[in-house]
Computed example of a mutant assay.
Amino acid sequence: MAEEPDIIKQLRDAEKLGLVQSKMQSEYEEVESVDQASENIWGETVAFSEDEDQKINSNEKYSSIENLEFIKSILDAIDDGIYIVDNQGNIQYINPVIRREFGPVNNKKCYEYFHNRTKRCPWCKNKEIFAGKSVHWEWYSSKSKKYYDLFDMPFVNKDGSIFKFEILKNITELKNNNKKLKKQKKIMETIFNNTPNMIVLKDKNSVYRNVNNSFCEFVGKKEEEIIGKTDYDLFPSEEAEQYIRSDKAIINEGKQQREEWVVPGENDKTWLKVIKSPIMDEKGEATVVLCSLTDISDIKRIEEKTRYLKDYNENI
């Protein structure tokens, strides 16, 4: 369930002061729209062009505004966009934020004003709103080129007419930042999985949380066969104890360690240059171990061969 926006909470606070009253209808009421000028909720003149019955479900609660000037001053001061519309698409109110974003109403219907359309929008949520439901959704405006988080709710004016109350929160910056983060994440994943170095992330209990492709190839297992496991599931007990002991030292001391390991293999041994670094949480405590392993077997074999030749020449 969507969390109530701050303005709704403010209106509920106003309700406690007697400025806004909740209204429960005991039965369906029919409110006839007339083809003539009528007053909107602020006492201004607005023309209704359609004749349509509006029904109020007895099981739904609506809000009826009593002190209009007080509430209007609240709506005018809200940082988010606020607009109120009737079931025929006649805009009853827009706050300064909406006016700055979309301009003056000039007697336009909501679909003309917001979408430059000549008829109702196929994605319109008004059917749900005027049936007594509150709806939380997102919308991209081709007119303002911005993204909005929308919260729509119905309320009943004191004369029984139903209106849609909508809050528009500009989330364009948030959406753009999310796109950037996704792009950066994709780049990091590409680097992570294509580097020749083996990279591993373990939690403080030495449980594997993330591994790259190079490490998977080294141990001969798929990623899903490694994540959630410990070294005891992947290596002989003696090796596993060495690796886990090293992890605990990183967590306890909070310092980077550099080591060289020799890993036995079926045909030959493998030399690894291992760099383990702690990753701190917001409290400054080490909770994750970042491990980078580089295969230096070729270098070690060259060093062994060089030493052998040196010893051989010295003994001639």
Rank of each mutant, 00 (worst) to 15 (best):
Y147Q: 01
Y232S: 07
Y111D: 07
D53E: 02
V200I: 10
L19T: 04
N126F: 07
Y232K: 07
P104S: 12
I226D: 10
T118M: 13
D159R: 08
N313H: 09
M153D: 05
T294Y: 15
N40C: 11
T45H: 13
K222R: 11
Y232C: 04
R245C: 01
I82S: 08
K221M: 09
F192H: 12
T306Q: 04
E303C: 00
I98Q: 01
Q10C: 01
Y113D: 15
R245P: 01
G43N: 11
M153Y: 07
E239F: 04
A2Q: 15
E239A: 04
V135I: 13
L11C: 08
I56A: 07
E60H: 09
S73F: 14
G81Q: 11
K204V: 08
P236R: 01
H115W: 14
S26L: 14
Q184S: 15
S246K: 00
E128I: 02
I71R: 11
G103P: 10
A131F: 03
I8G: 05
Y208L: 12
K202W: 03
P196S: 15
I227G: 08
I191A: 12
E69N: 14
K145G: 07
N212Q: 15
A240S: 05
H136S: 08
K305S: 04
Q25T: 15
G254S: 12
D13C: 00
S64C: 14
L168G: 12
F215P: 15
E314H: 14
Y148Q: 03
E29W: 03
K9Y: 10
W261S: 05
G220S: 13
E27C: 06
I250K: 03
Q25E: 13
R245V: 01
E30V: 01
S142M: 07
V274A: 02
E166W: 10
L293D: 06
E314N: 11
N178A: 09
D247R: 04
Y93I: 03
L290S: 13
N95T: 10
S144F: 00
V156Q: 12
R120F: 05
K310C: 08
V46T: 14
A14F: 10
T270G: 03
E238K: 05
D295V: 05
I171E: 08
S49V: 02
V289H: 05
L11Y: 06
E253Q: 09
P96L: 00
T190G: 10
N197L: 06
W271I: 00
V262C: 01
K119I: 02
I191R: 10
Y308A: 14
C121I: 06
N197W: 03
K221T: 08
M280A: 05
Y140S: 11
S161V: 04
Q36C: 09
A249M: 03
E223W: 02
A131Y: 04
K175F: 03
P104L: 14
C110A: 06
S144L: 01
D152F: 09
D51R: 11
K300N: 00
E39F: 14
N176Y: 13
A286N: 09
G43Q: 12
D53L: 02
E223M: 08
K109P: 06
K182N: 13
L201R: 14
C110Q: 04
D268N: 01
D35N: 10
Q54V: 07
Q25F: 14
T270C: 02
D13W: 00
L290Q: 12
N40I: 10
D152Y: 10
Q92N: 10
W137H: 07
G132R: 07
